[in-house]
Design a protein around this nucleic acid. Structure first.
Lengths: 401, 401
DNA sequence: ATCACTTTATAAAGTCATTGGAAAAATAAA
DNA sequence: TTTATTTTTCCAATGACTTTATAAAGTGAT
């Protein structure tokens, strides 16, 4: 049943607008808030008092007088409430306590042993959260738990629909967590959440249409559309790795032909190295792997690349070319105003970054590249839990009409 | 300045919810509306009375008693208000008066002479609207004017950013129309508007993520995302024709390589015919064009295709293959629940429709095709003005939180 | 046929978040 | 010191909603 209009609704809306104004423009006086948002001073006063009681806002001395009584400034208190961010990956469960600005207060990493899949991994996630909650005091100030996970995730119903590596299928994670901990819980896909975090805490503050692309062992993408995460009809949107870039290319596991992933992900890199070696090329990779083919890993490749190995650089050139085609398609379809590139392949690799940027700017349609910006990720080490926080904060506080 | 919460807001919201309930479930009693939406009976009574005064709702006899007083049924009156829909194309300005269900009351077509471009075409549009308004009585019941146009359109600011054929560049059409006619005016891109109309008046009632693809002389697409039109950051989203499907393909005017449009639009078809003829193939096209190459038009091609010409059918097969690749990309990126195919090429061409459908279902990712539907357009002859109406009605009445 | 009970619609009274006006507090300028 | 101005807060009024009460119009059992 859809939400109907009542007094509670307008109060919530105005409280949010006022809090958001303080967060963005604070320290600010009550009077200025009223003027800025067209809300009566009386309403602002009562709202601010309530926000102070809640601990989300505090008075902060007096400001400069403009010819009369000095204004009492109020400022945002990001530590007034907190939230628990949880990131599930194939190798670790990362859990953090964060404040309203997604600043980490404490963080624990629970390693995932190989082979821990299906029901067991879910149990492990829940047990880890329980353990983490022991070290949290004053649960009453906790807004809730926000979980992000790779794979196909139905955020609306709170179900992990599908994750092949962790062997998850239709796991009602929100229900399980809410029942066990009594805290409101959110769930979303990791790449989408990162895209939202880049928008809200990263460089994309004014970008309502933002594209996040990650290149590492695989490729992934997250999409922010009209200011919120775009999930598609069943949470499966953004399978950027499986867009066709070469009609006459190789067949992919997914049933399609010439998928991007086949040209830029680790298996493609690996076979590129092998083929170079077979052709008798010299490469640092073989030295680093002690001449043992089976010891060639993504990390070895990265090392060799960093040391200027020509074979690896050629492979990266090839990747740049394919990535650009894929991103051009995205630009022509979505017309984003900002593209953020991340992932192990791009980190510390200015050349790849610039090559992709240049090629996309040249090949995408003229009207699409006007004002189009490229940026590297800026979230830093805590990006996973920050992403989880972004999902929760967006839902709780972004209450605009 | 963002809208703040006041009493007017909750009233508007509730009026909308009640009107929408009557429209969807009517005839319905006041009491049932209250139960269905969780609004108090008193509020429903007063809202319904106001809607009756406005002419948008009417009482409609009594219903069956369920053990007490007989309910007075109320129903939606789509003719209570009307709107003006305007469609601008390269060949004609179509204007219609429509009711709240986008049913056409009267319609006029103002032909566009060749060479009428730039300022002149805009003047012609405005003059045509003025002429049309003469035949409309009771302007006070008019919700406004909704205009759709091809090209890059910035719906938010009401500006036609760019249209190459009509030579339009940054035309502030909404401002011009509102000043001249004193009626609130809307403006949007044609393909996007059609996509929305297909959702609201066509087969896509429950599809919140819907994709509309048209294949004719060119290709176009419109996108409905989370229930509303997706426009991108500057109104340029959905340039489906310029997505790369062949990395090693031919260079396109747009600066990119292997764009879909180069393989499926009229110039590609034309050169396909020529190449077949050069290779000495028999084709009806030459007969229909009296052996004159320059007389080969899209219509001639369509006729030959309809008469079963093999050369034309081969070309259509090729088109199906390319279109499918492009649509698979869209499906993997957007995860829509419904794809609607339209345009001259697909109309009356069940074979093409089915071939595309089959290929997309086979090649898109498994999780994306679960529950994915294909449908032909259902809007009929008035689809252009219906599309314009959809834009206005969505904005005026879709007021959900 | 009568009486008890339902259902529907509306009227009257009560609730509550907003607003506008006035008062209080605090300060600058004359 | 006096006056004007700005900021904050108190208070009554507004208005859209809800609850409660009432009237109208029915059903169904006795």
């Amino acid at each position: 049943m859809r939400r109907t209009g009542d007094l509670k609704l307008i109060q919530e809306l105005n409280r949010f607008i006022i809090l958001d104004t303080i967060r963005q423009f604070g320290p600010i006086s009550r009077s200025d808030i009223a003027k800025k948002q067209g809300i009566s001073p009386t309403t602002v006063t009562s709202a601010v008092n309530e926000l102070i009681r809640d601990g989300m806002v505090a008075e902060d001395g007096t400001g400069e007088s403009k010819g009369g009584r000095k204004p009492i400034m109020v400022r945002f208190c990001p530590d007034g409430k907190f939230l628990i961010g949880v990131s599930i990956t194939n190798t670790a469960i990362t859990i953090a306590e964060m404040n309203l600005e997604a600043a980490t207060k404490q963080k624990k990493i629970y390693p995932v042993k190989a082979g821990l899949v299906s029901d067991l991994i879910i149990q492990y996630v829940l047990d880890s959260i329980e353990d983490f909650l022991q070290s949290v005091d004053d649960v009453s100030r906790c807004l809730g738990i926000s979980i992000i996970a790779p794979g196909i995730v139905d955020a609306a119903s709170g179900v992990i629909r599908f994750n092949s590596k962790l062997r998850l299928h239709d796991v009602p994670l929100i229900d399980m967590a809410e029942k066990r901990f009594g805290l409101k819980t959110w769930l979303d896909n990791d790449a989408n959440a990162i895209a939202l975090a880049e928008k809200n805490f990263g460089g994309g503050l004014n970008a309502n249409n933002l594209l996040f692309v990650t290149v590492g062992e695989g490729v992934g993408s997250g999409l922010v559309v009209n200011g919120s995460i775009f999930r598609g009809s069943r949470g499966g949107a953004g399978e950027f790795g499986h867009t066709t870039v070469d009609r006459s290319g190789m067949r992919c596991d997914c049933g399609n032909v010439g998928c991007l992933e086949n040209y830029v992900a680790w298996p493609a890199i690996y076979s590129g190295i092998l083929s170079a070696v077979t052709r008798g090329k010299e490469t640092l990779v073989m030295d680093l792997a002690d001449g043992d083919m089976t010891k060639i890993t993504f990390d070895v490749f990265r090392q060799a690349l960093h040391q200027g190995d020509q074979v690896c650089q050629d492979i990266v050139d090839e990747i740049a070319s394919y990535m650009s085609i894929g991103i051009v398609n995205l630009v022509n379809l979505f017309n984003p105003s900002l593209i953020i590139l991340g992932g192990e392949m791009i980190r510390d690799n200015q050349v790849l970054f610039e090559r992709i940027q240049k090629q996309v700017m040249a090949q995408a349609m003229g009207t699409m590249v006007e004002g189009l910006e490229f940026r590297p990720t800026v979230l830093g080490a805590d990006f996973e839990v920050k992403a989880a926080a972004a999902v929760l904060l967006q839902d709780v506080f972004h209450f605009s009409l």
